[in-house]
Design a protein around this nucleic acid. Structure first.
Length: 418
RNA sequence: GGAGGAGUGGCCGAGCGGUUUAAGGCGGCGGUCUUGAAAACCGCUGUGCCAGAAAUGGCACCGGGGGUUCAAAUCCCUCCUCCUCCGCCA
């Protein structure tokens, strides 16, 4: 959420300047509604002050006092109703207003306006026609889409043998690099969370359709970002503890409500996948540097695995609901002859912190301030596995295991059909 | 899942319808005293919101929400969390 004072001043301007992001969500009436709220609170508090005065007299009240108190009770209840009603309307708008993009975010209505920041590595030249992972995997006997569909449904996959082992190796490898070299603390959070947690991160109330929900009202985590960011919900952190860096592995569950027909083949878009996520809490003045740093940590993994990639700054029209800025990292996939998103690294500034009341205090006696939250995939297991299979494939259909991963796979150097 | 108990300020802890502007203690900050420190003594000590240029004034908050009352930390309902015991269970 954005600060009230900010929205009061800028609501109309935002709707006019960036209709692709701020149009049609009720920002035009915001300022008037906000003024009404304050006027009604002022009147209400005046009545309450009078009531407190009257009931400050000890003992049984006189008939005159009793009469005035009774009248006040009615007036107060009426004003409370009005105030609450206006407050509700304001909240309803505030909860669905997306974050304000930073000045460095490219302007444009969709992903065609995204800006390539840098590219690493050269797409490998093949002297044969490289296969897509949905052909390679089943041929090697390590990806089983049919049985995934049978035992669960579409967009579920069974990993066998070397693919299962490589998934486990990747989780271990990512966590080791982040904790031992990048300064992150490892966390293993709950995989089910409550609605409050999803509100903080911005998944609720607007994107409930993307989530799986249990009978008991819990939600399956769509990413470790949700439980880990909420670790410090409703807390006031000490300034000297910042920045805080967490790395967490969780499975991720997404209903992919709006994604019918997109990336239907293979395991690019699944209802369930594994991911290691990086989450940071930083001081406001440090968050942009932290964002670059965190993005660099995801890139480091791809470089060590020898996977060519590029970093893209998302445009205003492609930017998600909660981030102020996002870098997508796209990995080269020979099977589809294109760069495909493998990591998304975002700076949320105080947007999530305000929703979840995540604050810090600079010094003794100072007012609490909102921290800035950041997170990024570092990295998703399934898509990384796909990238390895496609980039490291050989003419005979076998796949080399990246050097960095071999120690995590008992020295295994290649994957062959068995 | 069943039975019982409990949630009060940074922490401990009193209060169980109207001198509570939440007693008292601990911790923290400032001061007096002291060559310095300790002890002792004195003062201060949260969050959000409204009005105001500010000084300041006001309102709300005793786990969350709702109710009763002229008046609620205190009474009622409901939910959540924790503790003890029983049952079940990886």
């Amino acid at each position: 959420m954005l600060p009230r004072e900010y929205l009061r001043e800028n609501a109309a301007r935002l709707a006019a300047e960036m209709p692709e992001r701020f149009g049609g969500i009720g920002l035009d009436e915001y300022a008037a509604l906000e003024r009404e709220r304050r006027e009604s609170i002022t009147r209400l508090e005046d009545k309450r002050r009078r009531r407190n005065e009257l009931s400050a007299t000890k003992g049984k009240p006189s008939p005159e006092v009793l009469a005035e108190s009774r009248a006040l009770k009615e007036e107060i209840q009426e004003l409370e109703r009005r105030t609450e009603e206006v407050e509700k309307l304001l909240r309803a708008t505030e909860e669905v207003v997306p974050n304000v993009p930073q000045a460095s975010v490219p302007r444009g209505k969709d992903e065609t306006a995204n800006r390539v920041e840098r590219t690493w590595g050269e797409p490998r030249k093949f002297d044969f026609t490289p296969q897509a992972h949905w052909d390679l995997g089943p041929a090697l006997g390590i990806l089983d889409f049919e049985r995934g569909a049978k035992i669960a449904g579409a967009r579920f996959t069974v990993l066998n043998g070397a693919a299962a082992r490589m998934s486990r190796a990747l989780i271990q490898y990512f966590l080791d690099v982040h904790t031992q070299e990048h300064g992150y603390r490892e966390v293993l959070p709950p995989f089910l969370v409550n609605a409050e947690s999803l509100f903080s991160t911005g998944n609720l109330p607007k994107f409930e359709a993307d989530l799986f929900r249990t009978r008991e009202g819990y939600y399956l985590v769509p990413t470790a970002e949700v439980p880990v960011t909420n670790l410090h919900r409703d807390e006031i952190l000490e300034a000297r503890s910042l920045p805080i860096r967490y790395a967490a592995y969780t499975p991720c569950f997404r209903s992919e409500a709006g994604a019918a027909g997109r990336d239907t083949r293979g395991m690019i878009r699944q209802h369930q996948f594994d991911k290691v996520e990086m989450v940071m809490f930083a001081r406001p003045e440090d968050s942009n540097a932290a964002h670059e740093e965190l993005t660099g940590h995801a890139e480091a993994l791809l470089r060590r695995l020898g996977l060519p990639y590029r970093v893209v700054a998302l445009a205003t029209g492609d930017l998600g609901f909660a981030p102020a800025k996002t870098y997508d990292i796209e990995v080269w996939l020979p099977g589809v002859n294109a760069y495909k998103e493998i990591s998304s690294c975002s700076n949320y500034e105080s947007f999530q912190a305000r929703r979840g009341q995540i604050r810090f205090r600079r010094g003794e006696g100072d007012k609490p301030e909102y921290v800035h939250t950041l997170n990024g995939s570092g990295l998703p297991v399934g898509r990384t596995l796909v990238a390895i299979l496609e980039n490291y494939q050989r003419a005979d259909g076998s796949v080399a295991v990246p050097e960095a991963l071999r120690p995590y796979m008992g020295g295994l150097a290649e994957i062959r059909a068995s």
